[in-house]
Protein backbone atom coordinates (compact mmCIF):
# COMPACT_ATOMS: atom_id res chain seq x y z
CA UNK A 1 0.00 0.00 0.00
CA UNK A 2 2.81 2.35 0.85
CA UNK A 3 4.55 1.68 -2.45
CA UNK A 4 1.30 2.29 -4.30
CA UNK A 5 0.83 5.56 -2.49
CA UNK A 6 4.38 6.73 -3.05
CA UNK A 7 3.81 6.61 -6.79
CA UNK A 8 1.58 9.68 -6.56
CA UNK A 9 3.95 11.81 -4.50
CA UNK A 10 4.57 14.67 -4.23
CA UNK A 11 1.07 16.13 -4.29
CA UNK A 12 0.19 19.57 -5.49
CA UNK A 13 -0.90 22.07 -2.81
CA UNK A 14 -4.51 22.03 -4.04
CA UNK A 15 -4.79 18.25 -3.89
CA UNK A 16 -3.10 18.14 -0.50
CA UNK A 17 -5.54 20.67 0.92
CA UNK A 18 -8.55 18.90 -0.58
CA UNK A 19 -7.46 15.54 0.84
CA UNK A 20 -6.81 17.17 4.20
CA UNK A 21 -10.24 18.75 4.25
CA UNK A 22 -11.90 15.42 3.43
CA UNK A 23 -9.85 13.48 6.01
CA UNK A 24 -12.21 14.26 8.90
CA UNK A 25 -15.64 14.14 7.30
CA UNK A 26 -17.60 13.88 4.05
CA UNK A 27 -18.04 17.33 2.53
CA UNK A 28 -19.58 19.00 -0.50
CA UNK A 29 -17.68 21.38 -2.75
CA UNK A 30 -18.53 24.64 -1.06
CA UNK A 31 -17.65 23.14 2.34
CA UNK A 32 -14.32 21.96 0.97
CA UNK A 33 -13.52 25.52 -0.14
CA UNK A 34 -14.37 26.91 3.27
CA UNK A 35 -12.38 24.19 5.05
CA UNK A 36 -9.29 24.85 2.88
CA UNK A 37 -9.50 28.57 3.65
CA UNK A 38 -9.83 27.78 7.36
CA UNK A 39 -6.88 25.35 7.40
CA UNK A 40 -4.56 27.85 5.70
CA UNK A 41 -5.93 30.74 7.78
CA UNK A 42 -7.12 32.49 4.61
CA UNK A 43 -3.75 32.32 2.86
CA UNK A 44 -4.82 29.75 0.30
CA UNK A 45 -8.19 30.02 -1.39
CA UNK A 46 -9.55 27.57 -3.90
CA UNK A 47 -11.83 28.73 -6.67
CA UNK A 48 -14.61 26.45 -7.91
CA UNK A 49 -12.83 25.85 -11.19
CA UNK A 50 -9.65 24.67 -9.49
CA UNK A 51 -11.59 22.69 -6.91
CA UNK A 52 -13.69 20.69 -9.36
CA UNK A 53 -10.81 20.21 -11.77
CA UNK A 54 -8.81 18.57 -8.95
CA UNK A 55 -11.85 16.67 -7.70
CA UNK A 56 -12.26 15.27 -11.21
CA UNK A 57 -8.68 13.98 -11.14
CA UNK A 58 -9.04 12.60 -7.62
CA UNK A 59 -12.20 10.73 -8.55
CA UNK A 60 -10.51 9.27 -11.62
CA UNK A 61 -7.52 8.13 -9.53
CA UNK A 62 -9.97 6.72 -6.95
CA UNK A 63 -8.63 8.86 -4.11
CA UNK A 64 -12.11 10.26 -3.54
CA UNK A 65 -15.54 8.72 -3.86
CA UNK A 66 -18.55 10.65 -4.98
CA UNK A 67 -21.51 10.03 -2.66
CA UNK A 68 -24.17 12.02 -4.48
CA UNK A 69 -26.82 14.29 -3.09
CA UNK A 70 -28.27 14.14 0.41
CA UNK A 71 -31.98 14.67 0.87
CA UNK A 72 -31.83 16.79 3.97
CA UNK A 73 -29.41 19.36 2.62
CA UNK A 74 -30.53 22.95 2.20
CA UNK A 75 -29.26 23.05 -1.40
CA UNK A 76 -30.26 20.01 -3.46
CA UNK A 77 -27.58 20.73 -6.07
CA UNK A 78 -24.75 19.85 -3.70
CA UNK A 79 -22.93 16.55 -3.91
CA UNK A 80 -20.83 15.02 -1.19
CA UNK A 81 -17.39 13.51 -1.47
CA UNK A 82 -15.56 10.98 0.71
CA UNK A 83 -11.87 10.15 1.06
CA UNK A 84 -11.17 6.56 -0.05
CA UNK A 85 -8.67 4.21 1.60
CA UNK A 86 -6.22 4.77 -1.25
CA UNK A 87 -6.59 8.53 -0.84
CA UNK A 88 -6.03 8.20 2.86
CA UNK A 89 -2.84 6.19 2.26
CA UNK A 90 -1.60 8.78 -0.17
CA UNK A 91 -2.34 11.54 2.32
CA UNK A 92 -0.47 9.62 5.03
CA UNK A 93 2.57 9.11 2.80
CA UNK A 94 2.57 12.76 1.74
CA UNK A 95 2.31 13.87 5.39
CA UNK A 96 5.29 11.64 6.31
CA UNK A 97 7.30 13.04 3.39
CA UNK A 98 6.50 16.58 4.41
CA UNK A 99 7.43 15.69 8.02
CA UNK A 100 10.85 14.55 6.81
CA UNK A 101 11.23 17.75 4.84
CA UNK A 102 10.30 19.82 7.88
CA UNK A 103 12.69 17.88 10.14
CA UNK A 104 15.55 18.28 7.65
CA UNK A 105 14.80 21.96 7.25
CA UNK A 106 14.82 22.54 11.02
CA UNK A 107 18.12 20.65 11.34
CA UNK A 108 19.77 22.74 8.61
CA UNK A 109 18.47 25.97 10.08
CA UNK A 110 19.75 24.98 13.56
CA UNK A 111 23.22 24.23 12.15
CA UNK A 112 23.30 27.53 10.29
CA UNK A 113 22.29 29.40 13.48
CA UNK A 114 25.09 27.62 15.45
CA UNK A 115 27.74 28.61 12.86
CA UNK A 116 26.66 32.25 12.94
CA UNK A 117 26.92 32.27 16.72
Amino acid sequence: MKDDASRFLPLSPAILHILLSLAADDLHGYAIMQEVARQSEGKYKLGPGTLYDNLQKLIQRKFVQELGRRPGDDDPRRRYYRLSSLGRGVLTAETARLGEVVREARLRLRIAKTRRA
Partner: peptide, 10 residues
Protein backbone atom coordinates in the same frame (compact mmCIF):
# COMPACT_ATOMS: atom_id res chain seq x y z
CA UNK B 1 -21.01 16.59 -13.47
CA UNK B 2 -20.02 19.89 -11.83
CA UNK B 3 -21.93 22.77 -13.44
CA UNK B 4 -24.80 22.72 -10.93
CA UNK B 5 -22.43 22.72 -7.99
CA UNK B 6 -20.34 25.55 -9.41
CA UNK B 7 -23.48 27.57 -10.00
CA UNK B 8 -24.54 26.81 -6.44
CA UNK B 9 -21.23 28.16 -5.17
CA UNK B 10 -21.71 31.29 -7.30
Amino acid sequence: RFADEMLSIF
